[in-house]
Amino acid sequence: MLSYLIRRTFWMIVTLFFIVLIAFVINFVVPGNPARTIAGPKASPEVIKAIEEKYDLNKPVPVQFEHYFVNLLHGDLGISYRTNESVNSELRTAFPKTMYLGFSVFFLNVLIGVPTGIYAAIKRSKFMDHVILISSLVGTSAPTFWIGYILLFVVGYKLSLLPIGGYGGISHVILPAFTVSLASAAGYVRVVRTSMLEVLGTDYVRTAEAKGLSQSTVILKHAFRSSVIPLITYAGMDLGTLMGGLIVTEGIFGWPGIGQMAVTAINYQDMPTIMGVVLVAAVAVVIANFVVDIIYALVDPRISY
């Protein structure tokens, strides 16, 4: 286990290094001079020069990368071109809000995806199963902004049940979380359904039934536990997509997380902020995947590291 942890951590660091490198390079490949973007087209060469100096843009790219990287090792993500504030402090405010939304989405995914998937598996090939499968297809393929807007229109505006956008407690988080969740819960439904169907056909489920266990015990204790493993895998793989969904949804609902930060930063070519968001998102995904692997070992006794 320990050697696994060490190996895993090593690869995590390597992964992150390459993410930094790639993000950095991509930022430099995009056309246009950031100093010019900051200064505006009419700015004099002196203004542009001063801005280049201020943001360390006058050095060759490898030197800039080195500076960035050294600062990064000290935990310093630099200064935003747009706001002149430290990216760290902006992320500190925004990231917990994204986590809040992200965990709400995850919670909803499980809350919607798992029972629905199980239900569909039990009702295999029956009418409700088809209904669920089709809705999950719709859920996956409908664009997030469309879902978000429909929810806002119906639930927020027409029914006045929940606030129309904005940040806040449970009542504020429900609609955006639901928006992201509708797409990703659909995936959960299908994964749970498929793996449940597979597990329900296994010999050990038949053994459990032969013991006289009730249907709910069979499903929850015997079948679901094993079918949870593909679900965990899926949840891990889905994290990247989830991040994407969060970014779009934050923009729709005015949720002040890193997604919203990213959208504004991209509009402005605010490189340090873009880098910061990319890094934080990447670290979050990498760590979450690490957690997924640990959970594997906890759920499936056959796996040991």
Partner: peptide
């Protein structure tokens, strides 16, 4: 059942 390898719940 016939196959003891698959008839017990692995988890």
């Amino acid at each position: 059942f016939q196959d003891p390898m698959t008839s017990l719940n692995p988890v």
